[in-house]
Protein backbone atom coordinates (compact mmCIF):
# COMPACT_ATOMS: atom_id res chain seq x y z
CA UNK A 1 0.00 0.00 0.00
CA UNK A 2 2.79 2.37 0.91
CA UNK A 3 4.53 1.41 -2.31
CA UNK A 4 1.46 2.26 -4.34
CA UNK A 5 1.07 5.58 -2.57
CA UNK A 6 4.68 6.50 -3.28
CA UNK A 7 4.23 5.41 -6.88
CA UNK A 8 1.19 7.69 -7.18
CA UNK A 9 3.07 10.59 -5.64
CA UNK A 10 5.81 10.14 -8.20
CA UNK A 11 3.31 10.31 -11.03
CA UNK A 12 1.66 13.41 -9.61
CA UNK A 13 5.00 15.14 -9.33
CA UNK A 14 5.84 14.09 -12.85
CA UNK A 15 2.58 15.65 -14.03
CA UNK A 16 3.20 18.87 -12.19
CA UNK A 17 6.72 19.49 -13.36
CA UNK A 18 5.48 19.15 -16.93
CA UNK A 19 4.53 22.78 -16.45
CA UNK A 20 7.84 24.18 -15.28
CA UNK A 21 7.03 27.89 -15.25
CA UNK A 22 3.87 27.61 -13.26
CA UNK A 23 5.55 25.23 -10.84
CA UNK A 24 8.29 27.75 -10.00
CA UNK A 25 5.93 30.73 -9.77
CA UNK A 26 3.57 28.80 -7.53
CA UNK A 27 6.47 27.88 -5.29
CA UNK A 28 7.43 31.53 -4.88
CA UNK A 29 3.86 32.57 -4.11
CA UNK A 30 3.70 29.91 -1.41
CA UNK A 31 6.59 31.64 0.33
CA UNK A 32 4.78 34.97 0.42
CA UNK A 33 1.52 33.60 1.73
CA UNK A 34 3.14 31.76 4.55
CA UNK A 35 5.34 34.58 5.74
CA UNK A 36 2.42 36.97 5.83
CA UNK A 37 0.95 34.83 8.59
CA UNK A 38 4.29 34.64 10.30
CA UNK A 39 4.89 38.37 10.31
CA UNK A 40 1.37 39.06 11.51
CA UNK A 41 2.07 37.12 14.66
CA UNK A 42 5.47 38.73 15.12
CA UNK A 43 3.98 42.20 14.56
CA UNK A 44 1.26 41.53 17.09
CA UNK A 45 3.84 40.70 19.71
CA UNK A 46 5.80 43.88 19.10
CA UNK A 47 2.92 45.67 20.81
CA UNK A 48 2.18 43.13 23.52
CA UNK A 49 4.67 41.09 25.45
CA UNK A 50 2.39 38.18 25.86
CA UNK A 51 -1.17 37.00 25.28
CA UNK A 52 -2.63 35.49 28.41
CA UNK A 53 0.81 34.36 29.45
CA UNK A 54 1.98 33.04 26.12
CA UNK A 55 5.10 34.62 24.67
CA UNK A 56 5.77 35.12 20.98
CA UNK A 57 7.82 31.94 20.57
CA UNK A 58 5.29 29.87 22.44
CA UNK A 59 2.61 31.08 20.05
CA UNK A 60 4.90 30.47 17.08
CA UNK A 61 5.45 26.92 18.29
CA UNK A 62 1.71 26.42 18.35
CA UNK A 63 1.39 28.07 14.96
CA UNK A 64 4.03 25.86 13.38
CA UNK A 65 2.50 22.64 14.68
CA UNK A 66 -0.89 23.50 13.23
CA UNK A 67 0.63 24.71 9.97
CA UNK A 68 2.70 21.55 9.74
CA UNK A 69 -0.34 19.28 9.97
CA UNK A 70 -2.39 21.39 7.63
CA UNK A 71 0.27 21.68 4.96
CA UNK A 72 1.15 17.99 5.07
CA UNK A 73 -2.52 17.20 4.57
CA UNK A 74 -2.79 19.70 1.75
CA UNK A 75 0.33 18.37 0.09
CA UNK A 76 -0.13 14.64 0.27
CA UNK A 77 -3.87 14.21 0.74
CA UNK A 78 -4.97 16.71 -1.84
CA UNK A 79 -7.45 14.29 -3.42
CA UNK A 80 -9.63 14.28 -0.36
CA UNK A 81 -9.62 18.09 -0.24
CA UNK A 82 -10.81 18.21 -3.86
CA UNK A 83 -13.23 15.35 -3.43
CA UNK A 84 -16.20 17.10 -5.04
CA UNK A 85 -14.21 17.35 -8.29
CA UNK A 86 -13.58 13.63 -8.25
CA UNK A 87 -17.30 13.01 -8.07
CA UNK A 88 -18.20 15.51 -10.76
CA UNK A 89 -15.61 14.44 -13.32
CA UNK A 90 -16.41 10.78 -12.80
CA UNK A 91 -13.08 9.75 -11.29
CA UNK A 92 -14.92 8.13 -8.45
CA UNK A 93 -16.60 5.72 -10.86
CA UNK A 94 -13.15 4.74 -12.00
CA UNK A 95 -11.99 4.14 -8.44
CA UNK A 96 -15.01 1.96 -7.84
CA UNK A 97 -14.02 -0.46 -10.60
CA UNK A 98 -10.58 -0.98 -9.11
CA UNK A 99 -9.82 -3.49 -6.39
CA UNK A 100 -8.70 -0.99 -3.75
CA UNK A 101 -10.30 1.05 -1.02
CA UNK A 102 -11.98 4.24 -2.20
CA UNK A 103 -10.46 6.47 0.44
CA UNK A 104 -7.02 5.11 -0.29
CA UNK A 105 -7.40 5.68 -4.02
CA UNK A 106 -8.64 9.19 -3.34
CA UNK A 107 -5.51 9.91 -1.35
CA UNK A 108 -3.41 8.51 -4.17
CA UNK A 109 -5.22 10.50 -6.82
CA UNK A 110 -3.47 13.80 -6.36
CA UNK A 111 -0.49 15.27 -4.61
CA UNK A 112 -0.08 19.01 -4.58
CA UNK A 113 3.65 18.91 -4.41
CA UNK A 114 4.07 22.68 -4.50
CA UNK A 115 2.66 22.86 -0.97
CA UNK A 116 5.74 21.06 0.26
CA UNK A 117 7.21 24.57 0.49
CA UNK A 118 4.74 25.29 3.26
CA UNK A 119 5.73 22.15 5.09
CA UNK A 120 9.36 23.19 4.94
CA UNK A 121 8.51 26.68 6.17
CA UNK A 122 6.49 25.40 9.07
CA UNK A 123 9.42 23.22 10.07
CA UNK A 124 11.70 26.27 9.90
CA UNK A 125 9.37 28.24 12.17
CA UNK A 126 9.18 25.25 14.51
CA UNK A 127 12.96 25.16 14.78
CA UNK A 128 13.19 28.94 15.29
CA UNK A 129 10.73 28.82 18.16
CA UNK A 130 12.35 25.77 19.76
CA UNK A 131 15.74 27.46 19.72
CA UNK A 132 14.39 30.62 21.30
CA UNK A 133 12.39 28.87 24.00
CA UNK A 134 14.49 27.75 26.91
CA UNK A 135 13.35 24.19 26.99
CA UNK A 136 14.72 21.66 29.40
CA UNK A 137 14.68 18.67 27.08
CA UNK A 138 13.85 15.18 28.22
CA UNK A 139 12.45 12.10 26.52
CA UNK A 140 8.87 12.98 27.47
CA UNK A 141 9.07 16.28 25.71
CA UNK A 142 10.36 14.70 22.53
CA UNK A 143 7.41 12.30 22.63
CA UNK A 144 4.91 15.11 23.20
CA UNK A 145 6.29 17.07 20.28
CA UNK A 146 6.14 14.09 17.94
CA UNK A 147 2.63 13.22 19.09
CA UNK A 148 1.54 16.80 18.46
CA UNK A 149 2.92 16.81 14.94
CA UNK A 150 1.33 13.48 14.05
CA UNK A 151 -2.05 14.25 15.53
CA UNK A 152 -2.01 17.62 13.81
CA UNK A 153 -1.86 15.77 10.49
CA UNK A 154 -4.58 13.38 11.63
CA UNK A 155 -7.02 16.06 12.69
CA UNK A 156 -6.90 17.83 9.35
CA UNK A 157 -7.09 14.54 7.54
CA UNK A 158 -10.18 13.68 9.58
CA UNK A 159 -11.76 17.05 8.87
CA UNK A 160 -11.20 16.71 5.13
CA UNK A 161 -12.69 13.22 5.15
CA UNK A 162 -15.67 14.45 7.15
CA UNK A 163 -16.43 17.34 4.82
CA UNK A 164 -15.94 15.24 1.70
CA UNK A 165 -18.49 12.71 2.97
CA UNK A 166 -21.07 15.38 2.52
CA UNK A 167 -20.27 15.59 -1.21
CA UNK A 168 -21.74 12.15 -1.78
CA UNK A 169 -25.16 13.54 -1.10
CA UNK A 170 -24.91 17.04 -2.54
CA UNK A 171 -22.41 16.17 -5.28
CA UNK A 172 -20.93 19.52 -4.40
CA UNK A 173 -18.39 20.99 -2.08
CA UNK A 174 -19.64 22.69 0.98
CA UNK A 175 -18.37 26.15 1.82
CA UNK A 176 -19.18 25.42 5.45
CA UNK A 177 -16.20 23.14 5.52
CA UNK A 178 -13.91 26.15 5.39
CA UNK A 179 -15.30 27.33 8.71
CA UNK A 180 -13.88 24.21 10.29
CA UNK A 181 -10.75 23.70 8.25
CA UNK A 182 -9.51 27.15 7.28
CA UNK A 183 -11.32 29.11 9.97
CA UNK A 184 -10.49 26.57 12.62
CA UNK A 185 -6.92 26.55 11.48
CA UNK A 186 -6.57 30.31 11.92
CA UNK A 187 -7.91 30.17 15.43
CA UNK A 188 -5.86 27.15 16.32
CA UNK A 189 -2.68 28.95 15.35
CA UNK A 190 -2.95 30.50 18.78
CA UNK A 191 -3.20 28.38 21.92
CA UNK A 192 -6.89 27.60 22.29
CA UNK A 193 -6.77 28.57 25.97
CA UNK A 194 -6.62 32.27 25.14
CA UNK A 195 -10.18 32.27 23.75
CA UNK A 196 -13.52 32.51 25.47
CA UNK A 197 -15.05 29.49 27.15
CA UNK A 198 -17.55 28.69 24.37
CA UNK A 199 -14.84 28.54 21.76
CA UNK A 200 -12.61 26.48 23.99
CA UNK A 201 -15.50 24.05 24.39
CA UNK A 202 -16.07 23.74 20.64
CA UNK A 203 -12.41 23.26 19.88
CA UNK A 204 -12.03 20.72 22.64
CA UNK A 205 -15.06 18.51 22.31
CA UNK A 206 -16.31 18.99 18.77
CA UNK A 207 -13.18 19.58 16.75
CA UNK A 208 -10.41 18.66 19.14
CA UNK A 209 -7.82 21.25 18.16
CA UNK A 210 -7.12 21.90 21.83
CA UNK A 211 -5.68 18.40 22.23
CA UNK A 212 -3.00 19.28 19.74
CA UNK A 213 -2.03 22.81 20.37
CA UNK A 214 -3.06 23.58 23.91
CA UNK A 215 -3.10 20.80 26.49
CA UNK A 216 0.09 19.09 25.31
CA UNK A 217 1.84 22.41 24.98
CA UNK A 218 1.01 23.24 28.58
CA UNK A 219 2.98 20.16 29.48
CA UNK A 220 5.69 20.83 26.96
CA UNK A 221 6.19 24.39 28.22
CA UNK A 222 6.22 23.29 31.86
CA UNK A 223 2.98 25.14 32.61
CA UNK A 224 1.63 21.94 34.13
CA UNK A 225 3.07 18.75 35.55
CA UNK A 226 0.09 16.59 34.80
CA UNK A 227 1.41 13.75 32.60
CA UNK A 228 -2.11 13.08 31.29
CA UNK A 229 -1.72 16.23 29.22
CA UNK A 230 1.22 14.64 27.56
CA UNK A 231 -0.93 11.99 25.90
CA UNK A 232 -3.88 14.20 25.04
CA UNK A 233 -2.96 14.29 21.32
CA UNK A 234 -3.97 10.63 21.17
CA UNK A 235 -7.59 11.67 21.70
CA UNK A 236 -7.60 12.82 18.09
CA UNK A 237 -7.82 9.15 17.15
CA UNK A 238 -11.32 9.08 18.63
CA UNK A 239 -12.22 12.02 16.42
CA UNK A 240 -11.19 10.00 13.34
CA UNK A 241 -13.83 7.34 14.01
CA UNK A 242 -16.95 9.35 13.09
CA UNK A 243 -15.07 10.93 10.19
CA UNK A 244 -14.23 7.62 8.55
CA UNK A 245 -17.62 6.22 9.41
CA UNK A 246 -19.46 9.08 7.70
CA UNK A 247 -17.35 8.55 4.59
CA UNK A 248 -18.45 4.95 4.52
CA UNK A 249 -22.09 5.93 4.90
CA UNK A 250 -21.72 8.54 2.16
CA UNK A 251 -20.27 6.00 -0.23
CA UNK A 252 -23.38 3.88 0.19
CA UNK A 253 -25.51 6.81 -0.92
CA UNK A 254 -23.39 7.55 -3.95
CA UNK A 255 -25.42 7.96 -7.12
CA UNK A 256 -22.79 8.59 -9.79
CA UNK A 257 -23.11 11.42 -12.30
CA UNK A 258 -23.72 11.57 -16.03
CA UNK A 259 -23.26 8.89 -18.63
Amino acid sequence: MVKLFIQSIKLSIKSQIEYKGSFILNGISQLFIFFTYYFMIVALFSKFNNIKGFTVYEVLLCFSIIQFGYSITETFFRGIDKFEDLIIDGSLDRFLVRPRGILFQTLCSDVDFIKIFRVIQSVIVLIISLINLDIVWNINKVIVLILCLISSILIFFGLFVLTSSYCFITLQGLEVKNVFTDGGKYMAQYPIGIYRKGIVFIFTFIIPYAFINYYPLLYFLDKTNNTLYMFSPLLVLIFLVPCLWSFKIGLKHYNSAGS
Binding site: L4, S8, L11, K14, S15, Q16, E18, R98, P99, R100
Partner: peptide
Protein backbone atom coordinates in the same frame (compact mmCIF):
# COMPACT_ATOMS: atom_id res chain seq x y z
CA UNK B 1 -3.37 10.69 -16.30
CA UNK B 2 -3.54 13.66 -18.60
CA UNK B 3 -0.04 15.09 -18.44
CA UNK B 4 2.12 12.01 -18.51
CA UNK B 5 2.62 9.14 -20.97
CA UNK B 6 0.05 6.35 -20.85
CA UNK B 7 2.79 3.88 -20.07
CA UNK B 8 3.23 5.46 -16.63
CA UNK B 9 -0.45 4.97 -15.90
CA UNK B 10 -0.10 1.35 -17.02
CA UNK B 11 2.68 0.83 -14.50
CA UNK B 12 0.51 2.32 -11.79
CA UNK B 13 -2.30 -0.03 -12.72
CA UNK B 14 0.11 -2.93 -12.32
CA UNK B 15 0.52 -1.92 -8.68
CA UNK B 16 -3.16 -1.22 -8.16
CA UNK B 17 -4.12 -4.68 -9.39
CA UNK B 18 -1.09 -6.27 -7.71
Amino acid sequence: AWDIPAEDTFDLLRDIYK
